[in-house]
Computed example of a mutant assay.
Amino acid sequence: MRAGSTRDALVAAALRVVEREGLPALTTRRVAAEAGLPLGTVHYWFTDKRQLVATTTDALLQEVRERSAGATDLRDAHRRLAAVPAGRQLALVELTTAALRDPALADLARQQYAAYRATALQQLAELVPRADADLPGGSEALATLVVAVLDGLTLSTLAEDDDEGRGRARADAAVELLLDLLQRHRDRVAPPGDAP
């Protein structure tokens, strides 16, 4: 294996372990076994578990960024993120929480939510073009609210979804409600002739 591919294989193995078994199962021994590599290989690439967690979290965040980057609107962004398998979503929640508990890793969580807000701001620019002038807190506050709503919907779907997909259907309906409210606001404050 080439050096980069060895490291990538270890990160992919770490993601699979967390996705399948949760963060407590993320040990260097478990990652080595999952990757089919000697334990020493993990220690060569990662000085400790903290570095392994940081690298794994960063890889997962990059995956989320790539998944949401091409979203055409908030509905599409929600669908793209909701399509992430439940185990992967739980892994992200666990890794984010671990990053928040460790001051050395907290910047990863900040980067995660900054990326979410950037995606929301991009999508909201057309939906609420005058947010900075018309809303308390402006576009930053609106983007923060949208991220919080979508984040909460992700968690509630994980908690409430069933074989019939009722949790996902409720989340989809909530996104439609949010979009309707934003469109109503846009239509209410649009100067004459600017309404779509």
Rank of each mutant, 00 (worst) to 15 (best):
L90Q: 13
R29I: 08
T154H: 00
R166G: 12
T72I: 04
G22F: 01
Y116G: 08
A171F: 01
A143Q: 09
E140T: 15
A195F: 01
R80N: 09
L181R: 15
V147K: 08
R130N: 06
E63L: 12
V11L: 13
T97N: 11
A91S: 11
A3N: 11
L127A: 07
D102W: 01
D187Y: 06
A148Y: 04
P192T: 15
Q89A: 15
V93F: 07
R170K: 13
T47K: 03
A54K: 05
G70I: 03
H43I: 12
R65V: 10
P191N: 07
A109D: 10
A54M: 06
T97A: 15
L100T: 10
P191H: 05
E34Y: 02
R80A: 13
L60S: 12
R50A: 10
R168W: 08
R130M: 02
D162K: 07
L10H: 04
E160G: 05
G87A: 14
P136Y: 03
A83Y: 00
L177I: 02
E19Y: 00
L52I: 12
G137D: 13
Q123N: 12
A159S: 08
T28I: 05
V149K: 02
Q123Y: 04
R20Q: 14
T119P: 00
T72P: 01
G152N: 07
G137W: 08
L153V: 06
G152M: 03
A35L: 09
T27W: 02
R186N: 09
D76T: 15
A115S: 14
Q112W: 09
G137E: 13
V11P: 01
A173F: 03
A109S: 14
G70R: 00
T57R: 04
R80Q: 14
E176V: 00
S5T: 05
Q122P: 00
T57D: 05
A14P: 04
E94M: 10
A125G: 02
L135Q: 03
H43Q: 08
T119F: 02
A195I: 12
